[in-house]
């Protein structure tokens, strides 16, 4: 499995803004099994890049191919199947159902394409220190706790690519490491790729490629 970028440039970029980027306006491919770390300062289009890869936005020129299929041509049903089976994401803004419990937030994703048993949710919550929050409303959790909920949710499905958009911004060092370990274990189990974007280099993310946006 491969995600290929062909001369992708956001429509809203001023001329020349993509110059010097190792991703924008380049031909580049990511394959399953590799870890890619993308370092991007604020305003360089980091979140847009992740949203383009996940198919949430199409306001770019160039092409993004998933196994030679242009994702711009996917319809809503195809995107649904793709997001169930091939690609998972942790949004920078988390996108949780704040009026539901933590368990409901995790189950609604797990049930869609079950990769783990329900008991695994408790084990992951234990590992990231939020086991006591499972029955609580999401809105009552701190941002750091919500970030860990979003991480666990992303790991409930099968995937070839795991997209991470600043996944640890509100976690302390200890929790960041625990979360990263968990994600790398899960990706290895699936022989999947992790594409992580952040403002600065994260030392405990063992990436084969380091790219600057």
């Amino acid at each position: 499995m491969q995600i290929s970028l062909q001369q992708v440039v956001p429509d809203f970029f001023e001329t020349g803004k993509a110059n010097g980027s190792q991703l924008w306006n380049q031909d580049i491919a990511f394959s399953t099994g590799e870890n890619v770390h993308i370092i991007a300062p604020s305003g360089s289009g980091k979140t847009s890049f992740i949203h383009f890869l996940y198919g949430l936005r199409k306001d770019y020129s160039g092409n993004i191919l998933y196994d030679n299929n242009n994702i711009k041509n996917y319809d809503a049903e195809k995107f649904a199947t793709w997001r169930q089976q091939n690609i998972s994401i942790i949004f920078q803004d988390l996108r949780l159902f704040t009026q539901q419990t933590v368990s409901q937030n995790l189950e609604i994703k797990r049930l869609l394409a079950p990769y783990h048993r329900e008991s695994r949710i408790t084990a992951m919550a234990n590992r990231l220190g939020i086991e006591g929050k499972l029955t609580k409303l999401c809105s009552t959790c701190s941002y750091g706790e919500q970030q860990r909920i979003a991480i666990i949710r992303a790991l409930q499905q099968p995937f070839d690519f795991l997209l991470l958009d600043e996944p640890f911004s509100h976690l302390d060092e200890n929790n960041r490491q625990k979360a990263m370990e968990l994600m790398q274990e899960e990706a290895t189990e699936r022989k999947a790729a992790i594409i992580l974007t952040d403002l600065k280099k994260i030392d405990y993310f063992k990436a084969e490629r380091l790219l600057y946006l």
Partner: peptide, 15 residues
């Protein structure tokens, strides 16, 4: 908002 998020997470519109 919830329906949009369900679609984003991979729920199929026809389902």
């Amino acid at each position: 908002d919830n329906l949009q998020l369900l679609l984003t997470l991979g729920y199929s519109p026809s389902w």
